[in-house]
Every structure is written in C-alpha cells, then in structure tokens.
Design a protein around this nucleic acid. Structure first.
Lengths: 155, 155
DNA sequence: TCCATTTCATTGGGTTGCCAACGATTGGAT
DNA sequence: ATCCAATCGTTGGCAACCCAATGAAATGGA
C-alpha cells in the first residue's frame, strides 16, 4: 500500500480546533457538492433560485441577505442567470435604486433539477451520521450561526 | 430599530443545507479567529508552528499533510516564517528533494503566544454550546472528515 | 427648500484555497 | 545500466470570498 493512499495526518492541536475542522469540512462539502451538481458556479445559481422560490421576487440586496452571498458578487451571477433566461431583472418604479429580480418559468424548472442534485449531495456529505446525529448536527450549526451572525431562523 | 441591525434572513431551503451552514459557519470561525489572533496570515503561521511542535521537524510535504494546507501555499508562508526567524529550512542530505523544516526557539515562544489567542477564539466560537454539545459537535465533525478526507485521527 | 445620511447596484482590489504544471531528484523494474 | 513513474519544492492561474469606494436615488431633519 502506497503512502499516497493514506489520508492526510493532521496534527493533534489542529485536529481539536473547531475552526480548523470547520474550514476543512466546508471544503469537503464544496467538493461533494461540486462532484454532484457540476461546475462551481452552478451551486451559487442554486442559491439564488432557491431564495427566489422560497421568498418570491426581491431586490438584489434582499437576495444577498437571503442567500448569504456578497451583494457585489451577486451582480455577475445575476448577469449570467439573466443571460440564461432563468431570471429577469427589472428596475423598481417605486424606488429606482432597486432592481426587482424575478424567476422565470425556465428558472423554476432549472431549480427543480438542481434541487434534486443538491439534496443528494447533502445525503452523501452526512452519510456517516445517523438520522439523529444529522438533526443534532444541523441544530448545533444553526445555533452557532444565529449567535454569531445574528441570523433570523426561518423556521 | 433599523433594519440593518437585524441579521441576514437566509431562505428556508439554504438554511437546512448542511453545505450552506458549513460554509457560513466556517466564515464565522475565520472572523472570530481574525478578531482574536490578528491579521489573516497569523493563523496560518499558527498552523505550521503547531504542526512542528506536535510532530517535530518535517519536510514541507509532510507539513502540508499535518496542517491541511496546500503544498504550494506553504512555500510563501515558510518564506515569511523563515524571514522572521521562527523556522529554519535546510536541505535534506539524504534526499535532496526534501527540505527539512525545523522550529527555532523564537518560533516556540511565538507559538506559545498564538496558542493562547487561538484557544480563546475557539471558546468564543463555541460560546453558545454547553460542554457536552461542544464535544458532540467536535465528534461529529471529525467523523465526517475521517469519512470524506480519509484523515488519520491523531487521537 | 436644502443639506446630510443612508441604501442601492455596480466595480475593482486583495486575500485565500485549490489545482496543474515544471524541473530536479529518487526509487523500482526490467 | 537504463528507462519509468513517483515525489519534492516551486511557480502561476483560477475561482470564492470579503471589503471599500463610487454614483444614483431616496429619506429625514433643520
């Protein structure tokens, strides 16, 4: 058995640092999601479409809040989504600073496709955990995020 | 109370995606660590010094495995650490591809300083959790990492 | 009415992490 | 002995993420 077959051997100190574990586990998640969903930017596409489906049409700023993505980074993303015909971007007449982002029918079907792939990825990521452990894991993460980022729990 | 005082309101679908939670929670960790330890690159400094203290002198490749950092990114980091006199880098005579990285006395004292700050950051990050919850949280994360990254649990 | 503050979308830069090369060097197989 | 493959440190590129600044537009107060 070659040495390269073995996994990395993190040092004890880092292995017990939650920040280190979180960083690398987030990386695992990104990889699993990438393998399942496809190229990187498809995932952000999903976030935007999911936010629109869950909360309805919204300005880019609100969309940034719903997805947790940076407002600036949303611009380029929406340019692509708009070019693909998945969303429309129309100026808001009542407040001309805003642009109202709305999902198209095509966007809805694309979301349905991505939703399945993303759900599968979550299952792969949490595969080693029992159902109870998964629920507990989510609960703990949400609790931390609410505390540190002041997130509103959507329930 | 202004709207900007409220936290972001993630949409329900993303809020229940482990990959989304992990991504953003890792961000929280990075922020807490940054606030506590200082500028960004101090954290990676810590990782290298901790790996050297835990496992002794090693080649850059082994160091990459211990810290989980990319081999390539280690180069620039070690350049800085070497310039600061925290580590020494000497070619390995028995295998001239390798460079043996060793911690200096100065590096040891710097690690002691950082170790305290990093430990405080972990405490801040996990503040909302009980001791039992913290242990469970670490256990779950380690279990996932071992499964997906094939990591060797250092115990 | 006028002025200061705020929010909006947009742009650009800076940092980090990840991946693919490259030359040098080693070890193994034939 | 001589190729072949693997590993080492190093470099560079690419995508994400975060932050700061900009001009346009709205808001609130004096």
């Amino acid at each position: 058995m070659k040495l390269s077959m073995q996994g990395a051997a993190p040092t004890r100190r880092l292995w017990n640092r939650p920040t280190w574990l979180l960083n690398h586990l987030a990386g695992s998640g990104r990889r699993v999601l990438g393998d399942q969903v496809g190229p990187a930017f498809e995932r952000n596409k999903y976030g935007i479409l999911a936010a629109l489906a869950d909360g309805g049409a919204a300005s880019q700023s609100v969309l940034s809040s719903r997805t947790g993505q940076d407002r600036g980074d949303l611009v380029a993303m929406l340019d692509k989504l708009e070019a693909e015909g998945l969303v429309t971007r129309t100026p808001d007449p009542s407040d001309r600073r805003n642009k109202r982002v709305e999902m198209t029918e095509q966007g809805r079907s694309e979301l349905k496709r991505l939703d399945k792939l993303v759900a599968e990825a979550q299952d792969i990521l949490l595969a080693p955990l029992t159902q109870d452990e998964r629920a507990e894991f989510l609960r703990l993460m949400k609790s931390l995020l609410i505390h540190h980022e002041n997130y509103q729990d959507p329930g």
